[in-house]
């Protein structure tokens, strides 16, 4: 564990930042630390965290998944339509939609790993195509309400603990096992670090890359299904904010956008930071436009503090200060 922490200093930094943010928020809006508020913060963070799980895998592998918004949205719309408010169909609808999300990921991954399409283009195209298909399919009409079971999973509690937090915890454990304790994890980090070296070391690079997109498609679909329970209905555009938040959660969590390192444990902190931030900003009495500006700027700042150039700047600045102090350099 010690080596994990020393190798992932940025993750430690993300958690420290999160604690600071909690203190600041508690100062500005004292109600923040109440049980009900903490619970709703956790519920909201869970959606970001679950959807960002797949994004974390894709980014570690050196790619990016921009198809998340409409994979999520499609799963939400199809779930409500296919269940029509009933719990029973969930038995086959949920597995079907998860498989569907996985299939979109498979296509994304195949395009990237087999055909060499740049990830940005491949997944952006998938996103637009899905958006079009859903618009054609629904004709823009509202869909039925979410089944009660889904509502229970999203906002229900078991002895005071939100069910979705339990789901999130289970997924976090699974992601940790995959990244830190499995051969797939080693392959993934190798592919993200240097795909040629990975190939020359006998790593199944194509399969590894494709699998990250499959995971991302599945977590996006799962996120869509669960989010419907929170909002009560599926609506068009409900996934749009998740593109930025998933990438930001991964980045705040310390994973370099070019891949090769980082961990889902960091993304968890990233998801919490983002959610707490959206809770803090209204407390500052800002207009909704100003809110977005601050939101974006804070994320930009957090991510750049962790970036390599920034830390190099810090290092060289402090070296210079030291030299000036020692008198080996003037001014």
């Amino acid at each position: 564990m010690n080596t994990f922490l020393s190798r992932n200093r940025l993750i430690v930094l993300a958690y420290i930042g999160m604690l600071l943010l909690v203190l600041i928020t508690a100062f500005f809006s004292p109600g923040f630390l109440s049980a009900s508020n903490l619970r709703s913060t956790f519920i909201l963070a869970s959606f970001v965290g679950i959807v960002a799980l797949g994004q974390t895998f894709v980014i570690i592998g050196g790619g990016i998944d921009l198809s998340i918004p409409w994979v999520l949205n499609s799963a939400a719309v199809l779930m409500t339509l296919l269940c029509a408010g009933q719990d029973l169909p969930l038995i086959w609808v949920v597995p079907l939609l998860l498989a569907g999300g996985g299939l979109i990921g498979l296509l994304n991954g195949a395009g990237v790993a087999l055909l060499g399409v740049p990830p940005i283009i491949m997944t952006l195209a998938a996103n637009v195509i899905l958006q079009g298909l859903i618009l054609v399919f629904t004709g823009g009409t509202p869909t039925p309400a979410a089944p009660d079971m889904i509502k229970f999973l999203s906002v229900g509690r078991i002895s005071g603990i939100p069910v979705i937090a339990l789901i999130w915890t289970a997924l976090t454990v699974l992601a940790w096992l995959l990244l830190s304790k499995s051969a797939f994890g080693r392959h993934l980090y190798a592919v993200g670090t240097n795909v040629t070296v990975a190939r020359y070391s006998g790593v199944p690079t194509t399969r590894t890359t494709i699998l990250t997109y499959v995971i991302s498609g599945m977590t996006a679909a799962l996120g869509g299904i669960l989010l419907t329970g929170y909002s009560g209905v599926a609506y068009l555009g409900m996934g749009d904010s998740y593109l930025f938040t998933t990438v930001a959660a991964v980045a705040i969590g310390g994973a370099p956008i070019l891949g090769g390192s980082g961990h889902y444990i960091g993304t968890v902190a990233g998801a919490l930071v983002l959610t707490i931030l959206t809770g803090l900003l209204p407390a500052l009495n800002l207009s909704s436009g100003a809110l977005l500006v601050v939101y974006g700027a804070v994320i930009l700042l957090t991510v750049s503090i962790g970036s390599e150039t920034f830390s190099e700047m810090w290092a060289s600045a402090s070296n210079r200060r030291k030299r000036i102090k020692e008198g080996t350099e003037n001014g």
Partner: peptide, 13 residues
């Protein structure tokens, strides 16, 4: 893998 440890490099294949 220049940014990874000797252990990760050795055991990768």
């Amino acid at each position: 893998l220049l940014t990874k440890s000797v252990r990760e490099n050795l055991s990768l294949p």
